[in-house]
Simulated assay, not measured.
Amino acid sequence: MQDIVNFLIQNPDVVEKVLEGKASLLGVNLDELNVITEGLKQLSVKSDGGFWGG
């Protein structure tokens, strides 16, 4: 799962598509997807300048 999170951090455009339901993560079950998306949503809320604060 760490590899998936690292990939998503490096590809914020994919994150947005996953959060919008326009893309899925192969090999990730629903529980894992919920954990990943909730964590990414929390990161986006904490950032100041865009999705990753940049």
Rank of each mutant, 00 (worst) to 15 (best):
Q42S: 12
E32K: 03
D31I: 13
S47A: 10
L25S: 03
G39A: 11
S44T: 09
V28M: 04
S44P: 02
I9S: 01
T37S: 07
Q10C: 11
T37Q: 07
S47N: 07
W52K: 06
F51R: 08
S44W: 04
Q10L: 14
I9A: 05
V5I: 15
L30D: 15
E32C: 01
G53F: 07
G39C: 10
L25I: 11
L25M: 05
L19I: 02
V15K: 00
G39Q: 10
V5Y: 09
Q2W: 11
L26I: 08
I4Y: 08
I4N: 03
K17A: 07
P12W: 10
F51G: 08
L19Q: 04
L40D: 08
N29K: 06
Q10F: 14
S24P: 00
F51I: 02
V5W: 07
F7L: 12
M1H: 14
N29E: 11
K41L: 08
W52Q: 09
A23D: 11
L43G: 10
E20V: 04
K17N: 06
G54D: 15
K22A: 12
L8T: 00
S47C: 04
E20T: 05
D13H: 09
G54A: 11
N11L: 00
G21P: 01
K41P: 01
L30H: 09
E20G: 03
D31F: 07
G49V: 14
D48T: 09
D48K: 13
L19K: 03
N6V: 07
D3L: 01
L25V: 07
G50N: 06
G21V: 03
V45F: 15
L43A: 13
I9G: 01
F7T: 13
S24G: 10
L40S: 06
L30S: 15
N11T: 03
D3C: 00
G49L: 13
L26D: 11
L30V: 09
E38R: 09
L33K: 08
K17C: 02
